[in-house]
């Protein structure tokens, strides 16, 4: 099936974290997903979670550049959400013989497995960050996530000079790495 050029454009926008693209996809498909979830023992909040997770899957796929959408975007989103929701229901021990919904689905198991792996990694990082405590977390977030420069950070956090900030950042970084790799190894050996 030939992919709609508009959808390709959407995916490209998505890869760049383009707000317009995200909004478009959201508008087009969210209601469908919400109906699916709510008709199958879920709430509006569940729908939001599942849909956002599907968006992340899509985002990662789009960013990797190797993604070829062989079906309608709608079908893909639906399949991912359906799969995610089934999994969640199973985790909640709620036996659902067959999720009802009439739309076609495409196999998405591989994507979801990769997504699951990434999710655990992100969660590890988030947990490590949380354990770090203030001001280390803000400091590292400012440097690595917001990518601000050292001078800026030093003045913002009230360090006398960039070197002091660097020194502090180094200490924090070492702690974060320790926490992260401990969790990482733990997870891998498990």
């Amino acid at each position: 099936m030939k992919t709609d050029p508009r959808e390709i454009a959407l995916l490209e926008g998505l890869a760049k974290n383009d707000r317009q693209a995200i909004e478009t996809i959201y508008k087009q498909h969210y209601n469908m997903v919400q109906t699916l979830i709510i008709n199958n023992n879920g709430s509006a909040d569940d729908a939001r979670d599942v849909f956002q997770e599907a968006m992340i899957v899509l985002y990662e796929k789009a960013k990797s550049g190797t993604f070829e959408l062989n079906c309608l975007l709608k079908t893909y989103v639906y399949s991912v959400c359906r799969r995610l929701w089934l999994k969640r229901l199973q985790q909640q021990q709620k036996f659902v013989p067959d999720i009802n919904g009439l739309s076609d689905t495409v196999p998405v198991e591989d994507e979801l497995e990769a997504q699951g792996q990434r999710n655990t990694e992100f969660q590890m990082m988030e947990k490590a960050m949380l354990h770090l405590g203030e001001p280390c977390r803000s400091l590292l977030e400012a440097f690595y996530i917001q990518k601000r420069n050292m001078l800026d950070i030093a003045s913002h956090f009230g360090y006398t000079n960039a070197d002091n900030a660097k020194n502090q950042k180094y200490k924090c970084l070492m702690r974060l790495k320790k926490l992260f790799f401990a969790a990482y190894k733990n997870n891998n050996t498990l």
């Binding site: 974290n17 707000r19 959201y26 956002q52 968006m55 992340i56 960013k63 990434r118 992100f122 996530i145």
Partner: peptide, 12 residues
């Protein structure tokens, strides 16, 4: 990747 993910999530 973590920062990307966080940003994307917040955008979402």
């Amino acid at each position: 990747r973590f920062s990307d993910w966080k940003q994307f999530k917040s955008t979402l």
